[in-house]
């Protein structure tokens, strides 16, 4: 099982390295969003600083939709999804492998985005323990939900437009929890941050369990 998860994750990361879609298209898109928010709210730099965490996670979710779409579009092309079904690989292993690869890609993107918001929004990063924990949990949760809906998109016409409609509402709890925890880590609001991180952890577990169970029938129908 672990060997198959690593096999799928390594393959997806290799594909991304070769195609450079993430670095060449998704990252510039995310940076552009960060920049546009700065233009829109620059009249009052205080608003930008106050809203840094929320704006950051909104951009991450938008970018996540693109990353998930890319991750599954390679499986849809040239009959590869059928080859995966014929391979005998456990659907749960395929799912977890894709979650792992999406998580790594999003973490790399988020590292660059944090630097961008620090510069453009004049935000001082801090509260590292809580911030890193929040980023990890929110990213895994996003990848877990994204991979579940990504395979649904394989069999839907107009999947490119449907995926955001399906995925973003499901990620609303991640957005709320991650924003609240990040705000506290950055010192924008007071109160304990770890309960929010724990909530994100709970979402991760639920999404991962649901995805592992649902991926088999969803892959069968794709």
């Amino acid at each position: 099982m672990v060997r198959d998860v690593v096999l799928i994750a390594a393959k997806d990361l290799r594909l991304e390295w070769r195609s450079r879609v993430g670095a060449g298209q998704v990252l510039p898109f995310a940076l552009l969003c960060v920049l546009l928010f700065a233009f829109a709210l620059d009249v009052d730099r205080g608003v930008l600083q106050q809203a840094t965490a929320g704006l950051f996670w909104v951009v991450v979710l938008f970018a996540a939709v693109l990353v998930v779409q890319r991750s599954f579009s390679v499986e849809a092309s040239d009959g590869v999804i059928d080859a995966l079904r014929l391979s005998g690989l456990s659907p749960a292993a395929v799912y977890l492998g894709k979650v792992a690869a999406i998580t790594v890609e999003l973490l790399a993107l988020e590292a660059v985005l944090w630097l961008a918001v620090a510069v453009l929004y004049d935000t001082t990063l801090g509260g590292w323990g809580l911030l890193v924990g929040t980023v990890l949990l929110a990213t895994v949760g996003t990848a877990a939900a994204g991979a579940t809906y990504g395979v649904v998109g394989l069999r839907l016409r107009g999947a490119e437009t449907l995926l955001p409609l399906l995925l973003l509402p499901l990620l609303a709890p991640v957005l709320i929890g991650a924003t609240a925890a990040s705000d506290i880590a950055l010192g924008r609001s007071a109160g304990p941050g770890w309960p929010w991180a724990a909530l994100l952890g709970m979402f991760c577990v639920v999404y991962l369990l649901l995805g592992s169970v649902l991926f088999r029938p969803l892959m069968e129908d794709s």
Binding site: K11, D78, G79, D82
Partner: peptide, 11 residues
Amino acid sequence: LGHASFLYADL
């Protein structure tokens, strides 16, 4: 062996 190649184009 189908009409599709069952191969990843970027690998």
